[in-house]
Amino acid sequence: MTAENPVISCKNVWKIFGPDPEAFMKTMPEGMSFEEIRAAGYIAGVKDVSIEVHKGEMLVIMGLSGSGKSTLVRCFSRLHDITGGTITVEGQDIMSLSEKELIDLRRSKMGMVFQSFGLLPHRTILENVAFPLEMRGQDKHTRRERALEVIKLVGLEGREDYFPRELSGGQQQRVGIARSLAIEPDIWFLDEPFSALDPLIRKEMQDEFLRLQQMLNKTIVFITHDFDEALRLADRIAIMKDGAVEQCDTPDQIVLHPATEYVRKFTEDIDKARVVHAGVLAQAHASGEGEPQDAGTTVHDMARMLVNDTREMIPVHRAGVSIGAMSRKAALDVLLGGDS
């Protein structure tokens, strides 16, 4: 998106599980499939993945269980050591970090939220949230203050002295979120943070999460198995299968142009009109007449206009500046599901 260096960049990353992954990796013939590797007694958790995450971007990694999405995000923070390839975080090769440097990196730059919250049951909410600060050796007073601040941010004021088991699932995940934010990380990993929650709570938490992100503007890697959630939150989506990335693109592009049959299956039942924005349909060199549409408007929101309007080409603006025009027919195709 931007020209500056990516925050996280990984090139040809492999993560293989099995008795002796390094040796296997060395002798492995080029282009071995996931099944072939499994037949050899190994599991390719991450298979030749190259991906970049940019500053302030929210990358959602989507895949079914066993697709390697959680493994990949654990490679980013070196909870797993990778078998091959390189991962750099803010320009530093994380595999070359010493134990101490790695701990420092996590203490200062990274926060992570877990599917089942990963709270420490014997500590109060306050102590859980202050845990990373405590580990970093901050004094009691400062860490209490900071923890209270984040607890307030996630809306759990007054529950500081409760224990995790005394809270509902949604509240527990708020604690998880607060803990991951306590050290003011630049990079925020969220591993299926809302999957364990009831659908209603999940929606509420997603809204809450979007609110936070607008305030904090972190670089985010978000994992989910829920395509709707991915579409709702992502700047870009990486869809994974058998350890490999099938497609990595914006939600609009994925919906409009699924790269593989696998991705297409996901998009089939999606109401594309709610995903595709005017900005994506705009053709840069085309121009149109009349009232412009904002680039961020979804086709769904333009539905009435599209049906009633008679223009061939409709101008599209972003932040008041023209970026081209979109064809009304193309937009209607999206709306009526005609182009697939």
Partner: peptide
Amino acid sequence: SPEVVEAGKMSGCTKAQMLRHVYIPS
């Protein structure tokens, strides 16, 4: 639970801190 362990690691625990604050209490 592996998540609790990972939460500890991501909180920047050293090995000793992991044992003392994460593993044994859990």
